[in-house]
């Protein structure tokens, strides 16, 4: 079955590898870590609908595949709609006694572009219809597959090939789109954020999201650092993710049937500059720009603390 028991220590993590080696994801790819752990919890009775993007192109180079589960890719912007079709197709065939596989679950894997930008409409449709699907967003904060172009999920001032650092413009002028709030506005019952530096936290959330997908759509948003896109050494992926959490650039959140929690408490925060300076995509930032990003983080922290009802994320050290 999907899901399984609560994971407390690394000893509880399943050893079976379901994401086969031999795929072409970059060394140090954060998304590859996320997909590896995703595969451990979806079980063998789940079908994956993958949006076009890095994960899709690197894992199914015909005639090979890294997926042990049934897997389908149709296009970039429609994975949620495909998932609705899979879901309803199985539902009706089950009612008619034709589907013999029992409780098959449906999982979408989409990148940030395929989710927050071009795929937002089909995602919204799927959520609004309440289709019983687990949606897994791996967010590497740009269109990586096509060579690092900005997306709605790219953070402010980040360099990408379409937000270059020039005389007039200094990286992306806009804020990162808040997909989490957009998704929750559809009234879904379970949504969580996670990142690849805390595999136990991520695993528990995937597990729960799979379980709850029995009743309706669930959503997991994983920050997935990308060495070539973020411009850092490929050995540093987990450290970059960890720093994102320690600075509260990224907050490991959970919304479970009306209850908000922060699953990785950060009593004392580090300044966001520590996260930014690990990455070449921010190397052009002025002090003023760093301050502006710090303010964005501070505001998010304040609103998350308010949601949770206590100060789960503390002040920046030394401020």
């Amino acid at each position: 079955m999907q899901g399984g028991k609560q994971i407390r220590t690394i000893k509880d993590l399943p050893r079976e590898e379901r994401f086969a080696p031999g795929h072409a994801m970059c060394a140090g790819c954060g998304a590859a870590i996320a997909i590896r752990w995703l595969n451990k919890y979806i079980g063998d009775n789940a079908i994956v609908a993958n949006a076009t993007g890095c994960v899709e192109v690197t894992t199914t180079t015909y005639p090979y595949t890294a997926w042990r589960n049934p897997w389908i890719h149709v296009a970039f912007e429609n994975a949620a709609a495909v998932a609705s079709g899979l879901r309803k197709g199985i539902d009706v065939l089950t009612k008619k006694g034709v589907w013999k596989n029992g409780d098959t679950r449906i999982v979408v894997v989409g990148g940030d572009g395929g989710t927050v930008d071009i795929g937002l409409q089909s995602l919204s449709g799927m959520l609004e219809r309440g289709d019983k699907v687990m949606y897994f967003l791996y967010d590497n904060e740009a269109y990586m597959n096509t060579g690092i172009q900005r997306s709605g999920a790219t953070p402010m001032y980040a360099w990408t090939t379409t937000t270059p650092v020039g005389q007039v413009l200094h990286g992306k002028p806009q804020m990162k789109k808040d997909i989490f709030d957009i998704v929750l506005a559809h009234g879904i019952k379970y949504a969580a954020t996670a990142t690849v530096s805390d595999v136990i936290d991520m695993s528990n959330k995937i597990r729960k999201a799979m379980d709850y997908s029995e009743d309706g759509p669930t959503f997991i948003h994983v920050l997935a650092p990308c060495p070539p896109g973020w411009k850092y050494d490929e050995s540093k992926t987990v450290e970059v993710a960890k720093k994102a959490v320690e600075t509260a650039y990224w907050i490991n959140l959970e919304y479970d049937h009306g209850v908000w929690s922060v699953t990785t408490k950060v009593p004392v925060r580090k300044p966001v500059s520590e996260f930014l300076r690990m990455q070449g995509r921010f190397s052009h930032l002025t002090q003023v720009e760093v301050e502006e990003i710090q303010k964005w983080v501070d505001a998010r922290v304040a609103s998350v603390n308010k949601l949770v009802g206590m100060e789960v994320i503390g002040p920046v050290k030394g401020r």
Partner: peptide
């Protein structure tokens, strides 16, 4: 009619969901 009718939000999704149904063996 014992069919699942999916009220999609566009024709792009209409055909995409139809593909999803056919992909699991449903007459779509």
């Amino acid at each position: 009619l014992a069919a699942e009718l999916i009220h999609v939000e566009s024709e792009h999704s209409a055909l995409s969901a139809t593909i999803g149904g056919a992909a699991v063996g449903a007459r779509a």
